[in-house]
Structures are given as C-alpha cells and as structure tokens.
Design a protein around this nucleic acid. Sequence first.
DNA 1: CAATAGATCATCT
DNA 2: GATGATCTATTGC
Length: 196
Amino acid sequence: MTPAEIRSLAILPRSFYARPAAEVARLLLGKMLVHGGRAGRIVETEAYLGETDRAAHTFHGRTARTEVLYGEPGHAYVYLIYGMHECLNVVAEPAGSPGCVLIRALEPVAGIGAMTVERPRTHSTAELCSGPGNLTRAMGISRRHYGADLTHGALTIRQMDVPREEVLTGPRVGIRHSTDWELRFHIRGNPSVSSK
DNA sequence: CAATAGATCATCT
DNA sequence: GATGATCTATTGC
C-alpha cells in the first residue's frame, strides 16, 4: 500500500471507541494503525475492563499513570513494562469509565524499511510487529504518545474493510489474574499474531 | 523443541 | 523494596 493510499483511509471517529472495551477490541481487528510513514493492520487485541478487572491497571483505582483511561475515548495510553518495553492501549468506553484495549500485534503494511531499522535482528516481515513491545518499537511509538488523540494527528487508526477472515476469542496472555476471561481476540491463521 | 535467565525502571506499597 | 498486560538469547533434553 502506498503512503497516499493510506492517507486516504478514513480515520475512525471518536464514537467508534465509546462502547464496551470488549466490543472495541473485537472491532479493531483488521483496522489500520498509522504513524508517519509506517502502518500495520491490527491482528491481535485484548480488552481490559476497569476497576473490576484484577488484571487491569485501574483495578486499584485512579492514579497519575491511569488518568488518561478515565478521560475521553479514542486517546492513547502508553506505559513502560518490565523496565524496557512500551505497550500501546486505546482508551474505550465513555469518559469516566476506564476500559481500554491493548494492541498486541500488527501485520506490517507500509514503512517496512523503517521498522527493520528499529528491529534489525528480525528474520521475517511478519515478526516485525508481533507482540505489544515489538510493535511499539517497530512503529516508533513511545510514552511521548501518552494521551495522544487517535482521531487526528500523527498517530491514527483508520478504517479498513476486513476481508473474509475468522476472528478467534481466547484467554488473555501474560497476566496472573482473571486468566479465565476470554478477552483476547485475533485473526485466525495470521502469521503476525503473537504465539503464547 | 521447551524451559529459564537476564535485561532494567516507573509505579505503587 | 517488590513487581510487572515482555522479549531475546541461551541452555538443556
């Protein structure tokens, strides 16, 4: 896909994000995450529900870090995990309700060269954005984007018509609580989905 | 293959 | 002061 074709895709409106996090997670599959000249189709997501979700950052209530989760939907929540990886989330649900969606994997579509510069040891294109820490690195997304508005600006998510693909649901990965909740969504058979 | 260790720090107790 | 929504390299079978 050319940069001009990507720029011509419609940006998802704020209303898209103003519904239950699990629904947003499901609907984000197939959409295009765009940052500068780099872009990738979302192929794996997880929903985090808010103060009733043991695995969510908002389980212990509102703090400085989680402030953006309580604001308007359609903004980015980026945080550092394990001292070295950044994770990108999208704020969902109406303001005041702190649900969000973790973007776990993308299928690289444009800017492959720039992605490879960030992750030179990767052996295939499909692996460039496979995993939440990997995709932020490859896409050049960092905590500078904390609170960024995804409905306009450098970092956006855009409409794509999802081809005939099957969506699978399963338990979230990498967490120690509420592991029996089926809040992970991914596109069946896509080689960029992180395996776990 | 599967299992494990090490890197490394913001955030919260 | 402990912990974690991870990743990679390395070791061991």
